[in-house]
């Protein structure tokens, strides 16, 4: 059974329709990448899955339950965590406090969970008492991912995790995504860096003009000359 399914979702902001029928699924343990040109609605799909936007049509199910239109605070309880593309840390809170906020809904000591994040990102362990707002873009991305991992999600959603990062850091972030995935966490990510993310992904979707157009294993999409020509900029 699929972990997450999105079926024929139509939605948008106010009067403006952005999604014109998107369907996708994520199976347990998979990395799924959504690629496509700017304005295709990639980030909008993520927001919709996470309840920041209500579907006009269609539905979203997670772990067999309908979660369409549930508010984010209820969605996180089901094991789905989300890292937005921008503004994804609390700048005046320390690294440690950022992580604590990720597990706010738990009434238990968070030490073990924090240590696990620090193991994954040793850089954060060194700077646990630094304010997140004073950190570099790459470090902030680590804080944001760490925050989202605090609840041990079944599915981690990443919106453009490599946006605006130096090439070396892009490598690091993609390595970390693979490492997280190896622990059994399914990953759904949206990426501008189509080549890198499709290489990493088990499957990919190409989204354009609010619809998913092509779907398939990451490597196959990369090799498809039509996909390359249409959406990946050659």
């Amino acid at each position: 059974m699929s972990l997450l399914t999105v079926e024929g979702v139509v939605s948008g902001y106010g009067e403006m329709q952005v999604l014109r029928g998107v369907s996708l699924r994520v199976d347990p343990g998979e990395i799924v990448s959504i690629v496509g040109p700017n304005g295709a609605g990639k980030s909008t799909v993520m927001k919709l899955i996470f309840g920041l936007l209500k579907p006009w049509e269609g539905r979203v199910t997670f772990d067999g339950e309908d979660i369409s239109g549930l508010p984010p605070e209820q969605i996180v309880r089901r094991g789905l965590c989300y890292v937005p593309q921008v503004d994804n840390v609390f700048p005046s809170l320390t690294v440690e406090e950022n992580l604590e906020m990720g597990a706010y809904i738990l009434d238990e000591p968070l030490k073990a969970r924090k240590e696990r994040v620090y193991e994954l990102f040793p850089r954060l362990a060194e700077r646990r008492h630094q304010r997140a707002g004073k950190m570099s873009g790459g470090e902030r991305q680590m804080v944001a991912m760490g925050r989202a991992l605090m609840l041990d999600p079944k599915l981690l959603m990443l919106d453009e995790p490599s946006a605006g990062l130096a090439p070396l850091l892009v490598d690091l972030i993609f390595d970390k995504v693979a490492e997280i995935n190896r622990t059994g966490v399914a990953v759904l990510m949206v990426e501008q860096n189509a080549k890198r993310s499709l290489e990493l992904a088990h499957r990919g979707y190409v989204l354009a003009t609010g619809r998913n157009q092509v779907e398939g294993p990451g490597a196959q999409l990369l090799a498809d000359p039509e996909v390359a020509r249409l959406y990946l900029g050659g």
């Binding site: 996470f50 605070e73 996180v76 809170l93 406090e97 706010y104 809904i105 925050r147 609840l151």
Partner: peptide, 24 residues
């Protein structure tokens, strides 16, 4: 305190507070 940190978090970024599951 937890609620105090959540207040600072909400002051920083209310959307992210909701996304993190903080009962706003």
């Amino acid at each position: 305190t937890k609620v105090g940190k959540a207040m600072r978090a909400m002051a920083d970024n209310p959307d992210l507070a909701r996304i993190s599951g903080i009962p706003t």
